[in-house]
Deep mutational scan, measured.
Amino acid sequence: DEDELTGILKKLSLEKYQPIFEEQEVDMEAFLTLTDGDLKELGIKTDGSRQQILAAISELNAG
């Protein structure tokens, strides 16, 4: 699971946030449920980064 998540972050060039997800024990299943508020709480402060992550999440959820 973590590897898939790392792959997604790398694709977005946001792998610098990978340790945050690891630290908070966010797995792929949890990742797919994250909201903008969750990402802010995790410490992802950049709007653009959150938008990219949320776009990836909705794409993955759309299947």
Rank of each mutant, 00 (worst) to 15 (best):
I44T: 03
I20R: 12
L60F: 13
I44D: 01
G48Y: 06
D47A: 12
F31S: 03
L32N: 06
L60N: 07
G63P: 12
E15K: 00
D36Y: 03
L5A: 00
K16C: 11
L9W: 00
L5W: 04
T33S: 13
L60W: 14
Q52E: 15
E15D: 09
R50D: 04
Y17E: 13
I44M: 07
M28E: 04
L32W: 03
I44V: 14
L54I: 10
F31G: 04
M28K: 13
K45H: 11
K45C: 08
K11I: 03
E2A: 13
K10A: 12
D47F: 09
G7I: 15
I20N: 13
L39R: 02
E2P: 15
G48C: 13
G7R: 15
G7P: 10
K11D: 09
K10V: 02
S13H: 15
K16V: 10
S58M: 08
L14H: 00
D36L: 01
E23V: 02
L32R: 14
A55S: 14
I57V: 08
D27W: 00
K40H: 07
D3R: 12
T33F: 02
A62E: 14
S58C: 07
F31D: 03
T46S: 14
L60G: 06
G48P: 11
L5P: 03
I20W: 07
V26I: 12
Q52N: 08
K16P: 13
Y17K: 04
K40L: 13
I8D: 03
E2M: 15
I20Y: 07
L39K: 00
L5E: 00
P19N: 12
D3Y: 15
E25C: 11
L39V: 03
A55G: 15
Q51A: 11
Q18C: 09
K11S: 06
E41V: 08
D47Y: 10
L39T: 01
L39G: 01
E22N: 08
A62W: 04
G37T: 12
F21S: 02
A62R: 12
K10E: 11
S49H: 14
G37P: 13
G63I: 09
R50L: 02
K16I: 05
E59W: 05
L34T: 03
E4V: 08
Q51W: 01
L39Q: 02
E22W: 01
E23M: 06
E2N: 14
T35D: 14
F31Y: 03
Q51P: 03
I8E: 08
D3H: 15
Y17T: 03
E22Y: 08
E2S: 15
D1E: 11
S58Y: 04
V26D: 01
I57P: 05
D38F: 00
Q52K: 11
D47E: 14
A55P: 03
E29L: 03
D27Y: 01
G43W: 00
R50F: 00
D27N: 13
E29Q: 11
K11N: 07
S49M: 12
T46L: 10
P19D: 13
I57K: 05
S49W: 05
S58H: 10
I8Q: 15
D3N: 11
E41M: 07
Q18L: 11
G37A: 13
L60K: 03
I44S: 02
E15W: 02
D47H: 14
Q18A: 14
A56D: 09
A56L: 09
F31K: 05
L34P: 03
E25T: 05
I53C: 05
M28C: 06
I8A: 15
Q24G: 10
G43K: 06
V26K: 04
D47S: 10
Q24P: 00
Y17C: 07
K45P: 12
A56Y: 10
T46P: 12
E41G: 11
S58P: 01
G37L: 12
Q24K: 12
L9Y: 00
D1N: 15
D3P: 09
D38Y: 00
M28V: 08
M28G: 08
E15F: 03
L9I: 01
L39D: 03
G43D: 08
Q51G: 08
L14S: 00
V26S: 02
G63W: 04
Y17F: 12
E59F: 04
Y17A: 03
L12V: 05
E23F: 01
T35Q: 13
Q52L: 10
I8C: 13
I53N: 04
S49L: 08
T46E: 15
D1A: 13
A55F: 07
I44A: 03
K45R: 13
L12F: 14
S49Q: 13
P19S: 11
E2F: 15
S13T: 10
T46K: 14
A56H: 09
G63A: 13
Q18I: 12
L54P: 06
S58R: 14
D38N: 08
S58L: 06
L34E: 03
G37M: 12
G63T: 11
D36K: 04
K45I: 05
Q24W: 04
L60Y: 14
K11L: 05
D36E: 12
G37C: 07
E29S: 08
L34M: 14
F21A: 05
L9Q: 00
P19K: 05
A62D: 14
Q52T: 08
E25N: 14
L54D: 02
G37N: 11
F21Y: 02
G43Y: 00
Q52F: 01
D36I: 02
R50V: 04
R50I: 06
L32S: 09
F21C: 01
D3Q: 15
E25R: 09
G48R: 10
L14R: 00
S49F: 07
F21E: 05
E4D: 06
E2Y: 14
L34A: 05
G48S: 14
F21T: 02
G43R: 02
N61G: 09
E59D: 11
A30Q: 09
E2H: 15
R50Q: 02
L9S: 01
Q24C: 08
L34N: 04
G63C: 10
S58T: 12
E15H: 09
I44P: 01
E41K: 10
F21L: 08
L54F: 01
A56C: 14
Q51S: 11
E4A: 03
G43A: 03
D3L: 15
G7V: 08
V26G: 03
G7T: 15
T46Q: 08
I20K: 11
I8W: 09
Y17N: 06
D27R: 08
F31R: 04
D36C: 04
A30M: 11
R50W: 01
S49G: 12
K16G: 10
T6I: 04
D3T: 10
E59M: 09
D38S: 08
L9G: 00
L9C: 01
E4R: 02
S13D: 15
